[in-house]
Amino acid sequence: MNSIIKEEKPKNTISKVLEVILTMVSRPSGLIGLIILIFHVTLAITSPLYVPHDYKAIDPSLMLQPPSSEYWFGTDSLGRDVFTRTILGGRTALTVTFFGSLIALLWGGAVGIFCGLVGGKIDDVVMRIIDAFLSIPWILAMLLIVSLLGTSIIVLIPALGFFYGKGIVRVARAATHDVIAKDFIVSARARGHSNFSIIWNEILPNVRDAIMVEGAMRWSWMLLGFSSLSFLGFGVSPPTPDWGLMISNARGLMSFAYWSVLAPIFGLSSLIIGINLTADAFAKALGIDRSTKAPV
């Protein structure tokens, strides 16, 4: 009797994580993405220990030097070492967008699951508000917030987290709708479990994958958004080294000093591509097809 109704033993978390990572690196694109991402994260954490020059040391006599053995990527218009600034340039972006996407994931997931579960009037109202926020271009809203509240990290992280979380609400809600009619939810209700217990024990394990994949994709879009803000002069403030800011500063002089614009372009592009490939491989490893989604 016991053997018939015995459930399949759930795998423990570590072996599941290991399995997902193995599936991810089994495809070349996933392996490349993960290597790039790990490289960038390591660089961001350790780079202050071995930068060759001071990132904010201004020296007019060294303006716009071409690459040399002393200054590997040349110098910028204020005589600062481009190599130093490039390897430091991802730190703020990675920190802000990592915590930003974490916030987006948490609030988007929570609101989405809640709306999917309760339905009715509350769901209607919340979704209309989410629709309204989706229809305001994120860049306009972000620029307004930043210009009125300032560009410190304390403003940027929650603001980005909020604006990139509204898409997650829809994904979490749709995923909740998919599981909510299943037998195990109905039987949990019949057993008299509370809403909270149903969310935590029955719904969350089933929608977690979809939400996490969405969060990973948001991370790369948020990085894009954050760098766009920096590029427009509404992100981190100088002299903090940041790729978006560096590209915008070096752009006007690129006809005689292309190195100072190419170095940060390479840094930012490789990080975004790395995160994207990793997120894609992550989605495929969890069996979620994202190719038909638009970037909302």
């Binding site: 766009s228 752009r251 690129m254 006809s255 292309y258 930012l268 591509i273």
Partner: peptide, 22 residues
């Protein structure tokens, strides 16, 4: 297509200017 959709607009635009115009 993967490259051109992941790279930020300001980077592809800047590269276009650098290559085509400069």
């Amino acid at each position: 297509t993967i490259f051109s959709m992941t790279i930020p607009e300001f980077i592809s635009a800047t590269l276009l200017i650098l290559i085509v115009a400069i």
